[in-house]
Design a protein around this nucleic acid. Structure first.
Lengths: 214, 214
DNA sequence: GTTGACTATTGAACAGCGTTCAAATATATT
DNA sequence: AATATATTTGAACGCTGTTCAATAGTCAAC
């Protein structure tokens, strides 16, 4: 059976990832099995373990793709708007749409366990960070007086909030009608930004007053 | 071996739940096994299945307890403050503390799969709802002109946001130093409420203007 | 062309899992 | 004491991720 040169190492790796992704989409993280992936590409389980550390390592690589796709979706959505607030709102809506359209793939990003003994590789961490950074970039023009640290924190909160909505809804833990989720997120972002802007304006006044005193 | 009258049906059920909770605390949802629970109470697996539908049914009952404990914690925290905003902020901080102090138990509430063919029982759904309702009750005085529907939505967003922070942090998906999480949540709640209050005040003005016209 | 080194691939084996259910045992009733 | 009923057992089933000796295809050297 051994067909040593049918596929290069790289071909084989991406065949495995493709099959894993298909199975993930179909059966979810819990339903994904090594034997199914292997039989999908007409190899046996052993081959998987010669190309990846274990099953979760395979899922991690699929998750990296998912995070890339999410990033692309967020970018595309933002570029359809000119105003900063509309852009941040689009991020919220797009994240929700992405999570629901790609339930199982999206869930796998959060279902995969993170163990301390197996630290998250840098190439993966970079993809996570990139998404959050993108929110911060879009948020920045709305709060011009904010410092970078506070900006990051605000972007983080928006991310957490929209993510929280998705986790609870996709997982059927605290359901809200799917159709309402989008406007809910948009209104939330509007209100939160309104609150942020107040603090930001106060800062402006303080800065101006200080300048005046001097 | 059979010891039919050693324990009543009710005793046995709570022994199983106690053992399940101990194992859950120790090993987490993924590490919980029927055989461990059984051997912990000196019974065999079969007995578990005569008292509960399956392993997830056991976890569901443990989760109900967890939700009760969370509710108690939120209440206790709120009662330590007089101002409404301080109370809502306390809810945020307390939720985070609870999630971190009871990682595995708290995670299990969200790790357990919800299947359409096995709908969530009413006694469980009631506990979920009660927590969210409590947030709404504490939030209400801050936005007096809001309608009940909007109030629920705002409470829902606060819940989602704080939950999102916990999910991402406890699961090591988007980590922020544990010590910062509390103030982060508090500042977030402050800002979001500030934004909500703006909308609420606008409503007041509109209402007053209408009254003036008439 | 044959040999030998190398390496990709196999698939049986292992220890574990949730779940089932006939058999065994203990209690209650007649 | 005999029968009926309820509780408990534990082996069995089919599944899981993972390992690793054995197999088999490839290639370089002679």
């Amino acid at each position: 059976m051994a067909r040593r040169s049918d596929h290069s190492k790289e071909e084989l790796r991406s065949m495995i990832l493709d099959a894993a992704q298909r199975n993930l989409v179909q059966a979810g993280y819990a339903g994904l099995t090594a034997r199914k992936i292997a039989s999908d590409i007409d190899y046996t389980v052993g081959t998987l373990y010669h190309n990846f550390q274990n099953l979760d390592d395979i899922v991690l690589h699929v998750n990296a793709r998912t995070l890339d796709d999410l990033y692309d979706a967020l970018r595309a959505a933002c570029e359809r708007h000119r105003e900063a607030q509309q852009r941040v709102m689009a991020i919220g809506r797009t994240y929700i749409d992405f999570a629901f359209k790609n339930r199982n793939r999206w869930s796998a990003v959060y279902d995969i366990p993170v163990r301390k003994e197996t630290p998250v590789p840098d190439w993966y961490r970079a993809r996570v960070t990139r998404n959050l950074e993108y929110v911060a970039i879009q948020l920045a023009p709305l709060v011009p007086e904010i410092n970078p640290q506070q900006l990051r924190k605000s972007a983080y909160m928006i991310w957490c909030s929209v993510h929280g909505m998705c986790v609870l809804s996709v997982g059927h833990k605290l359901e809200v009608p799917r159709a309402e989720l989008g406007v809910l997120a948009e209104n939330f972002i509007k209100d939160y930004i309104a609150g942020l802007v107040i603090r930001d304006r106060e800062k402006t006044r303080v800065v101006k007053r200080e300048a005046y005193v001097q």
